[in-house]
Amino acid sequence: MQVTDGGGRSVTVTARRAQIVAATVEVIAEFGYAKASFARIAARAALSSTRLISYHFAGKDELIAAVTREVIDSIGRYAASRLAVADSAAGMLRAYIMAMVEFTAAHRVSMTALMEIVLGGGLRHDAAADRDVVGPVEAILRRGQADGEFREFDVVVMATAVQRAVEGLPFLLQARPELDCAAYGRELVTLFELGTRMSPT
Rank of each mutant, 00 (worst) to 15 (best):
R131S: 14
I117Y: 02
F57K: 02
V133R: 08
G122I: 07
G121E: 07
H125M: 14
V166K: 02
D87P: 07
G122C: 02
S49F: 15
G122R: 04
I140L: 00
T50M: 10
I41Q: 00
L179W: 15
D132P: 09
A90T: 07
T112W: 03
Y96G: 05
D154C: 04
L63A: 00
L141V: 04
E149V: 00
V134K: 06
V157H: 07
V109H: 02
A106H: 07
Q174A: 12
M92C: 03
E138N: 03
L123K: 12
L188F: 08
G148M: 05
F103Q: 07
G148R: 03
Q145D: 06
H56V: 01
A129S: 11
E152P: 08
R69A: 14
L63V: 00
V85Q: 11
T104P: 08
M111R: 08
L119R: 15
S54M: 05
A79I: 08
R82I: 06
R143S: 07
T68M: 04
A129M: 11
R44N: 10
C181E: 14
Q174V: 12
L93Q: 00
C181I: 13
G148H: 06
L188C: 10
S81I: 02
A42C: 11
V155S: 02
E70T: 10
A127M: 12
R143T: 07
P170R: 10
A175F: 09
A79Y: 03
L172H: 15
P177W: 12
A86M: 00
D180F: 13
H56T: 02
A106F: 01
A43N: 15
G168T: 11
E167N: 09
F171R: 13
T50S: 13
G148S: 06
P177T: 03
M115C: 11
P136D: 03
H107D: 03
R142A: 07
V118T: 10
R69D: 10
V133N: 06
E178R: 11
A99P: 05
A183K: 15
S48H: 15
T160Y: 03
V71A: 04
R77G: 08
P170F: 10
S74R: 15
R108A: 05
I72F: 13
D130W: 14
I64D: 00
Y184S: 14
G185W: 04
F57R: 03
R164A: 13
M115D: 11
P136E: 01
V134D: 03
K60W: 09
A183E: 15
L179V: 13
D147P: 04
L172K: 14
R164T: 08
A106D: 11
F57T: 08
L172N: 13
E62N: 00
A182Y: 14
R44D: 10
S81W: 05
V101T: 11
L83A: 07
M111W: 08
A84Q: 10
V101D: 08
I117T: 03
A79G: 05
A99Q: 08
I97P: 00
M92I: 04
R40G: 05
D132F: 15
K60I: 05
M92F: 01
L141F: 06
R143D: 05
A89Q: 01
Y96E: 06
A45W: 14
R51I: 10
